[in-house]
Simulated assay, not measured.
Amino acid sequence: MWSWILFAGGLIILVLAVVAVRLQLQVAALKRQRQSEQLALEQAERDQRDRINKSIQIIAQGVESDQLSLTEASIRIKVLLDSLGVDDSVRAEYTAFYQLAKATDHIPILAQWKQLTLKKRVAFDRERETLEGEYRDFVLDAAKRIRGKTF
C-alpha cells in the first residue's frame, strides 16, 4: 500500500514538474516574442522619425530653392515637427514656421479652396503673399538653420 502511495505521489510530483517546466518554457517564449515585437516597434519608430526628418530636409531645401511657397513649407514643417513631439525649445528656435502657419491658418486649403470663388481665391492669394513678404527673411533663415538637423 505504501508503495502505491509513494508511486502515486511521485507520479503527481513528476506530472506537476512537467507542467511547471512547460509553463516556464511558454513564459520564456512569450517574453522573447514580446522583446522581438518591442525591438520591431522601436525600429519602426526610428524609421518613421528618419522619414519625417528627411521630409523636413527636403521641404527646407525646397524653400531655399523657391520650389514651394513659404506658407506651404511652414505648415508642412510645423506639422512634421509636431508629429515628432519636439520640445518647446525646438518650437521656439523654428518659430518662424509656426508663426507663418498660424498667420495663414484661416486660409482654406484643398477641397475648401476649390469651392471658393475666383474673387475669394485672388483675395486670399494676395493676403498670403503679403504675409509671406512679412515673414520671408524669418522663414528663409529658419529653413537654413534647420538644414542638416535631426529631431
Score class of each variant (00 low, 15 high):
residue 68 L to M: 10
residue 13 I to K: 02
residue 129 E to F: 07
residue 81 L to C: 04
residue 42 E to G: 02
residue 2 W to E: 15
residue 59 I to M: 06
residue 4 W to G: 09
residue 54 K to N: 14
residue 88 D to Q: 14
residue 82 D to F: 04
residue 73 A to Q: 02
residue 132 E to N: 06
residue 46 R to D: 11
residue 70 L to K: 00
residue 58 I to M: 12
residue 121 R to K: 14
residue 5 I to M: 11
residue 22 R to E: 15
residue 125 D to P: 03
residue 66 D to F: 01
residue 11 L to E: 03
residue 72 E to M: 09
residue 55 S to M: 07
residue 33 Q to Y: 04
residue 91 R to M: 03
residue 150 T to N: 10
residue 34 R to I: 08
residue 29 A to Y: 02
residue 124 F to W: 12
residue 151 F to E: 03
residue 109 I to L: 15
residue 114 K to W: 09
residue 15 V to T: 09
residue 101 A to L: 00
residue 21 V to F: 14
residue 78 K to T: 11
residue 14 L to Y: 06
residue 128 R to P: 02
residue 19 V to M: 13
residue 133 G to Q: 11
residue 63 V to H: 00
residue 109 I to H: 12
residue 142 A to N: 00
residue 75 I to N: 01
residue 115 Q to T: 11
residue 89 S to C: 02
residue 48 Q to T: 10
residue 92 A to S: 13
residue 10 G to Y: 05
residue 121 R to A: 05
residue 38 Q to C: 07
residue 17 A to L: 12
residue 97 F to L: 11
residue 140 L to E: 02
residue 143 A to F: 02
residue 44 A to D: 01
residue 118 L to T: 14
residue 36 S to C: 09
residue 144 K to S: 13
residue 21 V to T: 12
residue 19 V to T: 13
residue 138 F to Q: 04
residue 16 L to K: 08
residue 9 G to P: 01
residue 82 D to C: 07
residue 97 F to C: 07
residue 95 T to S: 15
residue 4 W to F: 13
residue 103 A to Q: 06
residue 51 R to M: 12
residue 24 Q to H: 14
residue 53 N to K: 10
residue 28 A to K: 07
residue 116 L to F: 04
residue 141 D to R: 12
residue 8 A to M: 08
residue 50 D to K: 13
residue 97 F to Y: 04
residue 35 Q to V: 03
residue 149 K to I: 07
residue 100 L to V: 05
residue 130 T to V: 14
residue 41 L to E: 14
residue 150 T to Y: 05
residue 63 V to D: 01
residue 133 G to A: 08
residue 114 K to C: 02
residue 27 V to D: 05
residue 109 I to Y: 10
residue 28 A to C: 01
residue 23 L to Y: 09
residue 22 R to T: 09
residue 58 I to W: 03
residue 64 E to L: 15
residue 2 W to S: 15
residue 8 A to H: 01
residue 3 S to Q: 13
residue 131 L to E: 08
residue 97 F to V: 11
residue 138 F to T: 04
residue 71 T to L: 03
residue 65 S to Q: 12
residue 77 I to G: 00
residue 73 A to D: 03
residue 106 H to F: 12
residue 69 S to N: 08
residue 47 D to M: 10
residue 92 A to C: 06
residue 112 Q to F: 07
residue 112 Q to E: 12
residue 24 Q to I: 10
residue 62 G to M: 00
residue 78 K to D: 03
residue 38 Q to H: 10
residue 94 Y to I: 05
residue 23 L to I: 10
residue 29 A to G: 04
residue 7 F to K: 04
residue 91 R to W: 01
